[in-house]
């Protein structure tokens, strides 16, 4: 990890103190709307996989810790300084340890390409690269992503034109509503970088980590096969 130098903020974000205050205000608003949303949504959307089986056997909740700061490298539960390397840039944030990488990207860095959909490591819309491998940013703690190279869809695309994978999605009509597309492009790119000669059948199994409710899988598989050829001749990342 790089040292904590106070670099100018290229994105014009506020200093941590100002930000914290603003966050507190925003949080109040968020809490309000969140509460009314949950009221409307009911509980039917809560359980998945094991969760569905376990709902009646809730593990006991521990009493809440008082505040952050303790000997022996313990941090939190309050905000702690976190340094992330995202798309080649060093970004410094103050986050609670419980903040997921996806929320850090979307809510604190305005990198909204990765989407929050299922929020439980199932749908793939939040896929980013960690050291070149596809991972779910919704199920990775931001504090745990320190020291790794994080690439988001924003960092995948070259300054001019499109990444070969994105171009292949375009060419093969591999999206409909497009909401799952950034996650798919990230998953497919990582997959092709590790498997330069994909087969149609192999893709069916290997890209099972991403879901598209519009059902564009046929186009996506064709796109990956096409992009694999382009990436081989032109090289992967732009």
């Amino acid at each position: 990890m790089s040292p904590h130098e106070d670099k100018p903020r290229p994105d014009g974000t506020e200093k941590p103190d100002e930000k914290r205050e603003k966050n507190a205000q925003e949080k109040k608003l968020r809490d309000l709307s969140r509460r009314s949303f949950i009221k409307g949504a009911g509980i039917a959307s809560v359980a998945a996989s094991a969760g569905a089986l376990l709902a009646d056997r809730v593990l006991e909740a521990a009493p809440r810790p008082q505040s952050g700061g303790m000997a022996g490298g313990v941090v939190g539960p309050g905000e702690v300084p976190i340094t992330l390397k995202i798309n080649g840039q060093i970004r410094k944030l103050n986050l609670e340890p419980r903040v997921m990488l996806l929320d850090a990207l979307r809510n604190h860095l305005d990198l909204t390409g990765a989407k929050k959909v299922c929020d439980r490591a199932t749908c793939g819309a939040c896929t980013v690269h960690l050291d070149g491998r596809a991972v779910y940013s919704c199920t990775t703690l931001a504090i745990d992503a320190q020291g790794h190279d994080i690439t988001t869809i924003e960092g995948l695309e070259p300054k001019e034109g499109l990444h070969p994978m994105s171009q292949a999605f375009w060419n093969n009509d591999a999206q409909q509503c497009g909401f799952c597309t950034p996650g798919f492009v990230m998953a497919c790119t990582a997959y092709v970088e590790h498997e330069p000669n994909p087969t149609y059948e192999g893709l069916q199994k290997s890209l099972g980590g991403n879901l598209c409710r519009c059902g564009t899988y046929m186009g996506i598989r064709e796109a990956v096969l096409e992009a694999a050829k382009t990436m081989k001749t032109k090289g992967g990342r732009a």
């Binding site: 909740a61 809440r64 810790p65 952050g68 303790m70 022996g72 490298g73 313990v74 941090v75 939190g76 539960p77 702690v80 609670e96 340890p97 419980r98 903040v99 997921m100 929320d103 929020d119 439980r120 703690l141 504090i143 745990d144």
Partner: peptide
């Protein structure tokens, strides 16, 4: 969904 607060050590 956000987990409950915790103290973290690596």
């Amino acid at each position: 969904m956000i987990p409950a607060e915790f103290e973290y050590q690596a």
